[in-house]
Nucleic acid binder design. Structure first.
Lengths: 267, 267
DNA sequence: AACCAAGTTTCAAATAATGAAACCATTTGC
DNA sequence: GCAAATGGTTTCATTATTTGAAACTTGGTT
């Protein structure tokens, strides 16, 4: 009742879909076959089926498969219905306008951070990111605050899955160091990323907690060491707290909205 | 070899997934059953399987299903690998900065326009839209220019599928009117939306054509009748042409990039 | 307490998935 | 220019999975 497999044919097909997506580039049949658990004809037919279904796209010139457009449409529905993003949107906008720095909204998915919305700072930030992107939980501001306020019974297995790869000299690279940090975060109510994932990039992060204390997601304000420092980011704590509270309130009252939208709203 | 069904169990499961997504809100088993082609236990098991696989999320309190987070992750991969968006991105940024109005990047998917990227105008536009959203092809700027430059053999069946619902008094609401408009667009090289989808909203749209003349996508600059008019938008034609040409060039040379990205790039 | 609606489980029959082997079509080596 | 190899596709008897009518359980209602 847990893992990926075990759901018959559909589960296997989705395994193949994930495999294609994991390459991060268009990929050939033989490349997939080399690392696939399935025999040649089986893999072949799954690729056929998924391509037929537009879950994959096939480039006949290069003979490569890539995740297909149907996913983009489906994901839009998922984003609007299964994430905090639509509820948080006005509040994230307000926060972004107030602080003038890059703002992220994230949720925890499996053992990873899933970014579900983002507002850029001024204009020319171009900090390669996008909703849908995933990142590590143990060395990002949003990841750490979400872990800190997650019930230990649920958090510990997740912590055990972290790679603890040392992206920078500041990365917390042992479970012990992370546990200490999480305790600090719990007592403060918020956390920082002290250049733990990328040199020069720092952030302050705030959990979004339901009335009952369940972690709904997290917010962060990100900047660079050239522009500010941790003390500077800390001045955003009140507005972050306020924003997180508003999002939690709306999520509570209102979850989930009865959209009266008809179908094709403009653009 | 065409439609949704016909791909065995996987096709049927994806049909169910689409059905859930099409509700646009969390939906109960019985609601799905009422309009489903599948018998009760079959539908039930598909929902179980898809939920297990995180393609759907299930809210036990409300007993509702909604598209799941796994789709958000998969779609990110699709967006980066199977759409023009990553190639177009720097050019769309530059265009957006130059014109200071809302910019859209779209592709044609089935008979609909699929918006794959967007830049907002100043700040407070909030014109409810997002990458992944779909819109009608016959009454949007991007839709019409893409149809206009699509091979008639491919375009005609698509045109036949349009609903021709009259969103506004300006909507082209017959195939004949649309055909005339498409001819005009072909001779001009670009097109407008003259408040055809929403009152007060106008745009100028440019196709993105490959060397061989194939439609890769379309760009548009959108504004309101309060802020400008068609003549005003027409001044953007040169920069739109230039941007479209650059995107087409990059798509040609470079399609598709060998990403050297390793895995977890920052944020 | 009986009823009803919604959701879940059972199980033999019907169907679809499986994969070893054979086949086809390009490219590569000599 | 031919042979061999590589990469991709098809066949088909076997096997495993899906299927759905019916029975059952659960929770809410009169």
């Amino acid at each position: 009742m847990a893992r990926g497999t075990g759901d018959g044919t559909v589960g296997k097909a989705l395994e193949v879909l994930d495999q294609v997506a994991s390459f991060g580039r268009p990929v050939r049949f033989s490349e997939l076959l080399a690392q696939s658990a399935f025999p040649k004809p089986t893999l072949y037919r799954f690729l056929q089926t998924l391509t037929n279904q537009q879950m994959l796209s096939y480039d006949p010139d290069r003979q490569t498969y890539a995740p297909g457009v149907r996913l983009v449409r489906l994901a839009h529905a998922a984003w609007e219905q299964s994430t905090l993003a639509p509820i948080a949107r006005p509040h994230v906008n307000a926060l972004s306008a107030a602080v003038g720095e890059t703002v992220h909204l994230a949720q925890l998915d499996h053992a990873q951070v899933l970014y579900i919305d983002k507002r850029n700072a001024g204009q020319p930030v171009e900090m390669y990111s996008q909703a849908g992107k995933v990142g590590p939980a143990y060395c990002t501001g949003v990841g750490k605050v979400m872990l800190a306020f997650t019930d230990p019974a649920a958090a510990d297995p997740v912590i055990a899955q972290q790679s603890f790869h040392a992206f920078t000299p500041h990365t917390l690279s042992t479970p012990e160091a992370l546990h200490d940090e999480l305790a600090d975060i719990r007592s403060n109510g918020y956390g920082f990323d002290r250049e733990e994932h990328e040199p020069g990039i720092i952030c302050v992060a705030m959990p979004i907690l339901s009335e009952t204390g369940r972690v709904l997601g997290a917010l962060s304000v990100t900047s660079t060491t050239r522009r500010t420092n941790l003390a500077g980011l800390e001045t955003y704590v009140p507005i972050l707290q306020d924003t997180a509270a508003k999002i939690a309130r709306d999520a509570q009252n209102w979850s989930f909205p009865d959209y009266d939208t008809k179908e094709t709203t403009r653009i």
